[in-house]
Amino acid sequence: MTSLQTLSSQASSLKTVDASLLIAGFENPVAQCQQAFRQLLSATSEPGTLQTMVATDAQPAGLNTASWSLALSLFDADCTVWLSPVLAAQPALVSNLLFHCQTRLVEHADEADFALCNADELDTLQPFSFGSAEYPATSTSLILQVPALSDECSLSAGSGWTLTGPGIKFSRHLCVAGLQDSLQQELIHSRNRFPCGIDCFFTCDHTLVALPRSTQLSIDQPIDQPTDQHSAQES
Protein backbone atom coordinates (compact mmCIF):
# COMPACT_ATOMS: atom_id res chain seq x y z
CA MET A 1 0.00 0.00 0.00
CA THR A 2 1.19 3.48 -0.74
CA SER A 3 -0.32 5.14 2.30
CA LEU A 4 2.60 4.92 4.66
CA GLN A 5 4.64 7.70 3.17
CA THR A 6 5.58 10.69 5.16
CA LEU A 7 3.52 13.84 5.18
CA SER A 8 6.45 16.00 4.31
CA SER A 9 7.04 14.22 1.02
CA GLN A 10 3.62 15.38 -0.07
CA ALA A 11 4.24 19.08 0.44
CA SER A 12 7.71 19.11 -0.96
CA SER A 13 7.76 16.30 -3.50
CA LEU A 14 10.79 15.43 -5.53
CA LYS A 15 10.64 18.72 -7.37
CA THR A 16 9.04 22.06 -6.77
CA VAL A 17 6.86 24.26 -8.91
CA ASP A 18 8.31 27.11 -10.93
CA ALA A 19 5.34 29.50 -11.13
CA SER A 20 6.65 31.20 -14.27
CA LEU A 21 6.33 27.93 -16.22
CA LEU A 22 2.67 27.27 -15.43
CA ILE A 23 0.26 27.06 -18.33
CA ALA A 24 -3.52 26.84 -18.45
CA GLY A 25 -5.15 23.46 -17.92
CA PHE A 26 -8.54 22.51 -19.35
CA GLU A 27 -10.70 25.55 -19.95
CA ASN A 28 -13.77 23.67 -18.77
CA PRO A 29 -12.30 21.07 -16.41
CA VAL A 30 -15.42 19.05 -15.59
CA ALA A 31 -16.67 18.61 -19.17
CA GLN A 32 -13.24 18.11 -20.69
CA CYS A 33 -12.08 15.62 -18.05
CA GLN A 34 -15.25 13.64 -18.65
CA GLN A 35 -14.67 13.78 -22.40
CA ALA A 36 -11.07 12.60 -22.01
CA PHE A 37 -12.18 9.83 -19.68
CA ARG A 38 -14.83 8.72 -22.18
CA GLN A 39 -12.14 8.55 -24.88
CA LEU A 40 -9.93 6.54 -22.56
CA LEU A 41 -12.81 4.14 -21.91
CA SER A 42 -13.37 3.73 -25.65
CA ALA A 43 -9.67 3.15 -26.22
CA THR A 44 -9.47 0.54 -23.47
CA SER A 45 -12.68 -1.28 -24.31
CA GLU A 46 -11.67 -1.53 -27.98
CA PRO A 47 -7.92 -2.11 -27.78
CA GLY A 48 -5.96 -0.99 -30.79
CA THR A 49 -8.41 1.66 -31.97
CA LEU A 50 -7.04 5.16 -32.44
CA GLN A 51 -8.69 7.88 -30.37
CA THR A 52 -8.21 11.57 -30.99
CA MET A 53 -8.02 13.12 -27.55
CA VAL A 54 -9.62 16.31 -26.30
CA ALA A 55 -6.92 18.98 -26.30
CA THR A 56 -5.74 22.07 -24.47
CA ASP A 57 -4.25 25.12 -26.21
CA ALA A 58 -0.76 24.15 -25.17
CA GLN A 59 1.02 21.41 -23.27
CA PRO A 60 4.15 21.51 -21.16
CA ALA A 61 7.40 20.85 -23.02
CA GLY A 62 8.12 17.14 -23.05
CA LEU A 63 4.52 15.95 -23.23
CA ASN A 64 2.38 15.40 -26.29
CA THR A 65 -1.26 16.54 -26.35
CA ALA A 66 -2.75 13.14 -25.63
CA SER A 67 -0.43 12.49 -22.66
CA TRP A 68 -1.24 15.90 -21.20
CA SER A 69 -4.99 15.29 -21.54
CA LEU A 70 -4.59 11.91 -19.84
CA ALA A 71 -2.60 13.51 -17.04
CA LEU A 72 -5.18 16.26 -16.50
CA SER A 73 -8.04 13.80 -16.34
CA LEU A 74 -6.45 10.88 -14.47
CA PHE A 75 -3.81 12.18 -12.07
CA ASP A 76 -4.69 13.60 -8.66
CA ALA A 77 -3.35 13.97 -5.16
CA ASP A 78 -4.16 10.35 -4.38
CA CYS A 79 -2.08 8.76 -7.11
CA THR A 80 1.64 8.33 -7.60
CA VAL A 81 3.45 9.05 -10.85
CA TRP A 82 6.89 8.07 -12.04
CA LEU A 83 8.56 10.14 -14.74
CA SER A 84 11.29 8.78 -16.98
CA PRO A 85 14.64 10.56 -16.59
CA VAL A 86 14.18 12.70 -19.72
CA LEU A 87 10.69 13.81 -18.67
CA ALA A 88 11.72 14.33 -15.04
CA ALA A 89 14.37 16.76 -16.29
CA GLN A 90 11.70 19.00 -17.86
CA PRO A 91 10.91 21.73 -15.31
CA ALA A 92 7.77 22.87 -17.16
CA LEU A 93 6.39 19.35 -17.15
CA VAL A 94 7.14 18.77 -13.48
CA SER A 95 5.77 22.18 -12.45
CA ASN A 96 2.52 21.76 -14.35
CA LEU A 97 1.96 18.18 -13.16
CA LEU A 98 2.44 19.23 -9.55
CA PHE A 99 0.29 22.31 -9.96
CA HIS A 100 -2.62 20.96 -11.99
CA CYS A 101 -2.73 17.40 -10.67
CA GLN A 102 -1.10 17.64 -7.20
CA THR A 103 0.49 14.38 -8.21
CA ARG A 104 2.90 12.69 -5.88
CA LEU A 105 6.02 12.01 -7.93
CA VAL A 106 7.93 8.90 -6.91
CA GLU A 107 11.51 7.91 -7.54
CA HIS A 108 10.94 4.18 -7.78
CA ALA A 109 8.88 3.00 -10.73
CA ASP A 110 7.37 0.08 -8.80
CA GLU A 111 5.67 2.51 -6.39
CA ALA A 112 3.90 4.30 -9.24
CA ASP A 113 0.24 4.05 -10.17
CA PHE A 114 1.17 5.69 -13.47
CA ALA A 115 4.43 5.93 -15.36
CA LEU A 116 5.08 8.54 -18.07
CA CYS A 117 7.87 7.71 -20.45
CA ASN A 118 9.27 8.21 -23.95
CA ALA A 119 9.54 5.08 -26.08
CA ASP A 120 13.27 5.47 -26.71
CA GLU A 121 13.97 5.50 -22.98
CA LEU A 122 12.37 2.20 -22.11
CA ASP A 123 13.79 -1.23 -22.87
CA THR A 124 12.10 -3.22 -20.11
CA LEU A 125 8.90 -3.44 -18.07
CA GLN A 126 10.73 -4.95 -15.10
CA PRO A 127 10.90 -1.82 -12.94
CA PHE A 128 7.12 -1.43 -12.87
CA SER A 129 4.59 -3.04 -10.58
CA PHE A 130 2.64 -5.91 -12.16
CA GLY A 131 0.16 -5.97 -9.27
CA SER A 132 -0.41 -8.92 -6.99
CA ALA A 133 -2.70 -11.91 -7.38
CA GLU A 134 -4.95 -10.44 -4.66
CA TYR A 135 -4.91 -6.90 -6.07
CA PRO A 136 -3.98 -7.04 -9.78
CA ALA A 137 -5.45 -3.55 -10.22
CA THR A 138 -2.55 -2.07 -8.24
CA SER A 139 -0.17 -2.51 -11.16
CA THR A 140 1.47 0.46 -12.85
CA SER A 141 -0.33 1.92 -15.87
CA LEU A 142 2.22 2.90 -18.47
CA ILE A 143 1.77 5.96 -20.67
CA LEU A 144 4.34 5.66 -23.41
CA GLN A 145 4.99 8.51 -25.84
CA VAL A 146 5.84 7.13 -29.28
CA PRO A 147 6.94 8.83 -32.53
CA ALA A 148 4.09 7.38 -34.65
CA LEU A 149 0.95 5.27 -34.34
CA SER A 150 -1.11 3.60 -37.02
CA ASP A 151 -3.80 0.96 -37.33
CA GLU A 152 -2.39 -0.04 -40.71
CA CYS A 153 0.99 -1.63 -41.18
CA SER A 154 2.43 1.29 -43.05
CA LEU A 155 5.03 2.65 -40.66
CA SER A 156 8.51 1.93 -41.84
CA ALA A 157 10.16 1.63 -38.44
CA GLY A 158 7.16 0.39 -36.50
CA SER A 159 6.33 -2.80 -34.69
CA GLY A 160 3.45 -4.39 -36.57
CA TRP A 161 1.15 -6.34 -34.28
CA THR A 162 -1.98 -8.37 -34.63
CA LEU A 163 -4.19 -7.90 -31.59
CA THR A 164 -6.81 -10.34 -30.36
CA GLY A 165 -8.81 -10.64 -27.16
CA PRO A 166 -11.65 -8.90 -25.32
CA GLY A 167 -13.06 -5.92 -27.22
CA ILE A 168 -11.78 -7.17 -30.59
CA LYS A 169 -14.20 -9.10 -32.81
CA PHE A 170 -11.66 -10.96 -34.92
CA SER A 171 -8.30 -9.27 -34.85
CA ARG A 172 -6.97 -5.77 -35.27
CA HIS A 173 -3.71 -4.36 -36.64
CA LEU A 174 -1.63 -1.93 -34.68
CA CYS A 175 1.65 -0.38 -35.63
CA VAL A 176 3.64 1.42 -32.92
CA ALA A 177 6.83 3.19 -34.00
CA GLY A 178 9.91 3.52 -31.89
CA LEU A 179 9.55 0.58 -29.49
CA GLN A 180 12.71 -1.25 -28.54
CA ASP A 181 12.85 -4.95 -29.42
CA SER A 182 13.38 -6.12 -25.86
CA LEU A 183 10.37 -4.14 -24.67
CA GLN A 184 8.27 -5.61 -27.44
CA GLN A 185 9.25 -9.15 -26.43
CA GLU A 186 8.42 -8.41 -22.81
CA LEU A 187 5.05 -6.97 -23.76
CA ILE A 188 4.22 -10.20 -25.59
CA HIS A 189 5.48 -12.51 -22.87
CA SER A 190 3.98 -10.53 -20.00
CA ARG A 191 0.53 -11.68 -21.22
CA ASN A 192 1.28 -14.99 -19.49
CA ARG A 193 1.16 -13.30 -16.13
CA PHE A 194 -2.52 -12.32 -16.41
CA PRO A 195 -4.39 -11.18 -14.28
CA CYS A 196 -1.22 -9.37 -13.27
CA GLY A 197 0.25 -7.13 -15.92
CA ILE A 198 0.81 -3.64 -17.23
CA ASP A 199 -1.88 -1.71 -19.08
CA CYS A 200 -0.18 0.37 -21.79
CA PHE A 201 -1.35 3.61 -23.29
CA PHE A 202 0.55 4.72 -26.39
CA THR A 203 0.32 8.40 -27.20
CA CYS A 204 1.46 10.35 -30.20
CA ASP A 205 0.43 13.94 -30.83
CA HIS A 206 -3.37 13.96 -30.30
CA THR A 207 -3.73 10.20 -30.66
CA LEU A 208 -4.23 7.58 -27.97
CA VAL A 209 -4.19 3.79 -28.32
CA ALA A 210 -4.70 1.44 -25.40
CA LEU A 211 -3.18 -1.99 -25.03
CA PRO A 212 -4.70 -3.48 -21.88
CA ARG A 213 -3.09 -6.53 -20.30
CA SER A 214 -5.98 -8.69 -21.52
CA THR A 215 -5.10 -8.12 -25.20
CA GLN A 216 -2.99 -10.80 -26.86
CA LEU A 217 -0.47 -9.62 -29.39
CA SER A 218 1.64 -11.32 -31.97
CA ILE A 219 4.19 -9.84 -34.34
CA ASP A 220 2.64 -9.54 -37.77
CA GLN A 221 3.20 -12.33 -40.25
CA PRO A 222 3.25 -11.46 -43.93
CA ILE A 223 0.29 -13.82 -44.56
CA ASP A 224 -3.09 -12.09 -44.61
CA GLN A 225 -5.27 -12.87 -41.65
CA PRO A 226 -8.96 -12.14 -41.35
CA THR A 227 -9.07 -8.67 -39.88
CA ASP A 228 -11.71 -6.53 -38.33
CA GLN A 229 -11.95 -4.21 -41.33
CA HIS A 230 -14.49 -1.91 -39.83
CA SER A 231 -12.40 -0.77 -36.90
CA ALA A 232 -9.17 -0.80 -38.86
CA GLN A 233 -10.54 2.06 -40.90
CA GLU A 234 -11.39 4.16 -37.90
CA SER A 235 -9.04 6.97 -37.24
Binding site: S3, L4, Q5, L7
Partner: peptide
Protein backbone atom coordinates in the same frame (compact mmCIF):
# COMPACT_ATOMS: atom_id res chain seq x y z
CA UNK B 1 5.14 10.49 13.64
CA UNK B 2 4.44 12.09 10.32
CA UNK B 3 3.34 9.05 8.38
CA UNK B 4 0.55 9.61 5.89
CA UNK B 5 -2.53 8.32 7.68
CA UNK B 6 -4.63 5.79 5.79
CA UNK B 7 -7.89 7.26 4.48
CA UNK B 8 -10.98 5.07 4.88
CA UNK B 9 -12.72 6.90 2.05
CA UNK B 10 -9.98 5.65 -0.27
CA UNK B 11 -8.90 2.30 1.15
Amino acid sequence: NDERPRDITRE
